[in-house]
């Protein structure tokens, strides 16, 4: 998403500053719409979620917008109001499900590849996510022995 924004801004700038002839401008504007189109697709594919509670904020990125019955790996960035240097993989549990249907996730996803980016920020992967039905889902990330999980909600539709 970030990437696509850069493309759009740099490109509009170059068009503004240009003093090319009309047909070149036309060509450029066609090119720009092409680029816009690609960036739009990029945006449609990648999904981004944000949530927080009193202790943490969590950003989740799904590299492609999920479909049914496939296994996915999502990226997570966790920021804390307190130092996170003590957090390890075994402190992170992932759960979720469909409230309306009264069931959980069909798989048991796990946190992998934890990196301490700095004192108050870690990033990790959530591997093994799968959704087997269309509809409203929630995903919970529970960190160590804190009370409230971090929850994101989304709708999967065909």
């Amino acid at each position: 998403m970030f990437l696509s924004r850069i493309i759009v801004t740099t490109f509009s700038r170059s068009v503004k500053n240009s003093n090319y002839k009309y047909d070149i401008k036309l060509f450029l504007s066609m090119l720009s719409s092409l680029l816009l189109l690609t960036s739009f697709n990029l945006q449609a594919k990648e999904l981004f979620f944000e949530t927080s509670n009193d202790q943490f904020s969590l950003e989740l990125t799904a590299p492609e917008s999920p479909s049914l019955n496939k296994i996915y790996r999502w990226k997570a960035v966790l920021k804390g109001s307190q130092p996170l240097s003590q957090i390890s993989l075994s402190d992170i549990t992932i759960s979720g499900g469909m409230l309306a249907h009264g069931h959980g996730l069909p798989t048991q996803p796990k946190a992998l590849n934890l990196t301490h980016n700095n004192d108050r920020q870690i990033s990790f992967d959530i591997q093994g996510l799968k959704f087997q039905m269309w509809g409203n889902w929630h995903l919970q990330v529970h960190v160590a022995d804190t009370q409230a999980p971090l929850i994101i909600e989304f709708n999967l539709s065909p």
Partner: peptide, 15 residues
Amino acid sequence: CIRCHNGPFLTNNDF
């Protein structure tokens, strides 16, 4: 039915 019988083979292959 679509909850479980989805996709081109009308199954989510789940349990």
